[in-house]
Computed example of a mutant assay.
Amino acid sequence: MNLKKQIKLNSDNASSTKHILVALLLFFLPFVGIFCAIVSVDNFKNYNSPYWFTFIFGIIGLIIALFISRKIKPYIVLNNKMIDSYDNLKILFIIGFIGFTLLIAQKLNSKLSVLEKCESTIVLQKIFHKGGFRRPEKNILIVNINGENQKIISERKYWENISVGQLAKVCVYKSYIGFDSLELLEEK
């Protein structure tokens, strides 16, 4: 059955409840997806490769969203006018789904990570990046772990209370999917 006939059938059988549900889903999905992305980014800020994590799982989310959006098109498109604007609806769906994918991947990575060690290490340097328009404030501590200087983004209150030369308790987590992370124990 071609898409025009499927849409005619959907339009004839669609109740006003279905119209409302589709509209609400497509309206709220991008906002929920953006919220999920913000939560996940805040949680993976101390990964060794946060940009690669975002890129890889963002692309995975994009591919899955494109596949799903193609499969659900006959059920979402309720009239001929929606055929022309389906690409806009698909973009909203993709934005939401990428956010979901990032949050699920971050949670999965956390569950698959094992504590390798916790050690007290000296704070070598403190760096403050002032926030501004579209740029968050960053409170960075530089510590030496396994002979390498590592940066850890901390909460402002913790960053203000610790000095260069003081000990910070840092835990190293190894992940089975390759996105290792660091965590400040005193921040919990």
Rank of each mutant, 00 (worst) to 15 (best):
M1S: 13
N2A: 02
L3S: 07
K5P: 01
Q6L: 03
Q6S: 05
Q6M: 02
Q6F: 00
L9A: 10
S16F: 07
T17L: 11
K18C: 06
L21Y: 12
V22S: 15
L25W: 03
F27N: 12
L29G: 06
V32L: 11
V32I: 15
I34T: 10
A37F: 15
A37N: 09
V39Y: 06
S40F: 02
D42Q: 12
N43W: 04
N48A: 08
P50C: 08
Y51F: 09
F57A: 04
I64R: 05
A65W: 01
S69L: 04
I72R: 10
I72F: 05
K73C: 04
K73P: 05
Y75F: 15
V77D: 02
V77P: 07
L78Q: 12
M82H: 08
I83F: 02
N88V: 00
F93D: 09
I98Q: 01
G99C: 03
L102C: 10
L102S: 02
L103T: 05
L103P: 06
I104A: 03
A105Y: 04
L108F: 07
K111G: 02
V114Y: 08
V114K: 11
I122E: 13
V123S: 01
Q125G: 00
F133T: 12
K138S: 08
I140A: 01
I142C: 03
I142M: 09
I142G: 08
Q150K: 15
I153W: 00
E155V: 07
W159A: 00
W159Q: 03
I162M: 05
S163D: 15
V164S: 06
K169R: 14
K169H: 11
Y173Q: 07
K174E: 04
S175M: 11
Y176E: 09
Y176F: 06
Y176H: 07
G178L: 07
G178V: 07
L184W: 06
L185W: 13
E186K: 13
E187L: 00
